[in-house]
Design a protein around this nucleic acid. Structure first.
Lengths: 136, 136
DNA sequence: CTTGAAGCTGTAGTTACTATAGGTTCTATA
DNA sequence: TATAGAACCTATAGTAACTACAGCTTCAAG
């Protein structure tokens, strides 16, 4: 019936990250400092677990530490509305799309080079890839 | 008729990077140390220009510094064949594709969240995005 | 009660640059 | 030729988001 406590190792493991990462999140203010055991070890409760999972899921979605700070502010402070979060998610989606587009152009460049290069038989002087990258 | 020389500023400018980037490439061994003027300023010739352009184009294609080291080794040493370069380009294409796939999954996650969130009217407690990220 | 795992703090390393400080050299104009 | 200011020099520190030590302390199991 009493509150359950977690060591930093258990916390990290269930969130799928390393202990050092939790330290790092504490240093940067994403995770609040938890209570300690008499010996000085960190002792976490369920809200900490949820918070760390939130941070990790947000990181997986490509949010940066600063953006997660903002998201957490929305959660920590009561006077916000869902629309603000939605706007951030949409902005993030736009940025991700931009990255996808960049990578796809890059991919086309690579594929073209590979396609033009018949491989094996050619010496460096004839290589179309070198040609494309090195010669003016 | 004599060889043309370029200052580091000119070199950087035509390659579309900063002077500090050229310094950095020199420190990491991508660019060889050029001759100097009597006063100690770097003085580049055409082969340096081509080499820097090669590095920059490779970076744009997503190659890391270490990979570019390898590519340059292929160019600098005579006993290599085009096939080795082609293999690296193909490997790079695979890695880029992997990144694209990751980002597209991420994008789907964001879009789903945004779609489910009707926005404006909802308080934080009802926000499906918070729901998805925060609640266990 | 002991031993080994886990935790503690603090610092340095990673990638590919970017930015600054404090000084020197080059170049264009007067 | 004198000089102002742009460009250059080296060296160091900062960026993002961790990761990896080193050297010590505490915890949990047997």
């Amino acid at each position: 019936m009493s509150t359950q406590f977690f060591s930093i190792g258990q916390l990290a493991k269930q969130a799928g990250c390393k202990v050092e990462t939790v330290h790092y999140y504490e240093k940067t203010g994403l995770m609040p400092e938890p209570p300690r055991t008499p010996g000085g070890h960190r002792s976490y409760t369920l809200p900490y677990v949820k918070r760390l999972n939130f941070i990790r899921r947000s990181r997986e979605l490509g949010f940066g530490i600063e953006q997660i700070h903002e998201l957490l502010r929305f959660i920590d402070e009561p006077d916000h509305y869902c629309g603000e979060i939605k706007a951030m998610a949409m902005q993030q989606a736009r940025e991700v799309q931009q990255k996808i587009n960049d990578l796809q152009r890059l991919q086309e460049g690579l594929n073209q080079m590979v396609a033009q290069c018949k491989g094996q038989g050619y010496s460096m002087d004839d290589c179309p890839i070198i040609e494309a990258l090195y010669k003016e």
